[in-house]
Simulated scan of single mutants.
Amino acid sequence: MHQNDNPYLVTVPLEIIGLLRALERRQALVRMHVQDRPISVVTTILDVDVQDNKVILDHAAAEDLNQIFIRADFVRFETALDSVPIFFSSSSIEACTHDGLPALAIDIPASLSRLQRRESYRVSIPALEPALCTIVEGASPNSTLSTGDGISVELRDISSSGLAIMDYGKIINYEPGTLYHNCLLDLPRVGSFPITIRVVRCINEVLPSQRNCRRIGAEFVDLPNAVLIMIQRYIGMVEREQSARRKGF
């Protein structure tokens, strides 16, 4: 899919600046992480300097972390505005000062992704009833999935626009843009459906059990309306059950 066909991509400079300034005003927390490394910090936007084309960010408390981000080739940023996720990235971070204090600076991004509220609402998958996605490396759009084919991986969460895969064995190609055709999405008590997904981002995590895991975020591609309805049915079912448990039912 070409960037211009991405309905979530914002490329109008005034709109990008407006969103960044809104994040600054609300002191929204921004997760900054180095691609392909289990390194991340939470920061905030201190200033949006249009004249110098810079976004000024609070620096990390540990100077060695700041140096890792400064030397990184690619850094991703994740935040939210009014509960709507926003993503952007930078290939260059530099040290600077802001109001006399150490800070970090990046160029104002040429684009950012902003999911819509309806598409961004996602539910966590119940641990006792896992949802699975079976992925076949190299599958073509016209191929069919046979029993025993592919690698089955657990899902962490799912929304109407995509899902998050927990790759404990780190065996899936996680390069952004990678397409996986004819995957099999298995949603408990709802059914199994063929889907195509595109890798959007990857984050290395260390779980509370100290187990290493790669969390891969992927978006649905050309999702049939019938499958979308079943995914929405599953999301609604899980949401109702989780809400009932919170209320003690």
Rank of each mutant, 00 (worst) to 15 (best):
C202M: 06
Q210N: 15
L184G: 05
R211H: 09
F193Y: 13
P208V: 04
V200N: 08
C183S: 14
G177L: 04
L185H: 12
G191A: 03
S209Q: 09
L184N: 08
N182I: 13
P176G: 01
V206L: 14
T178S: 05
V206E: 12
L184A: 09
V190T: 12
R211P: 00
R198L: 09
R189P: 03
L185K: 10
I203H: 02
V206H: 08
Y174Q: 02
D186Q: 11
L179G: 02
D186G: 03
Y174D: 08
I195K: 11
L207T: 11
E205W: 07
Y180H: 04
R189G: 07
R198I: 15
V200M: 14
S192V: 00
Y180M: 07
C202D: 04
L185Y: 08
T196N: 13
I203S: 00
P176E: 03
L207V: 05
C183G: 11
P188M: 09
I195L: 12
C183E: 11
L207F: 10
F193G: 01
E205F: 07
Y174W: 04
L187H: 05
T178K: 09
S209D: 15
C183I: 12
T196H: 10
T196Q: 10
I197S: 10
S192R: 08
N182T: 14
V190E: 09
L207Q: 14
L207D: 07
L179H: 07
G191W: 00
P188W: 07
C183K: 12
E175T: 14
L179V: 09
E175H: 10
L185F: 11
I197F: 13
V200Q: 10
V200Y: 03
H181M: 10
I195N: 12
P208Y: 05
Y180Q: 06
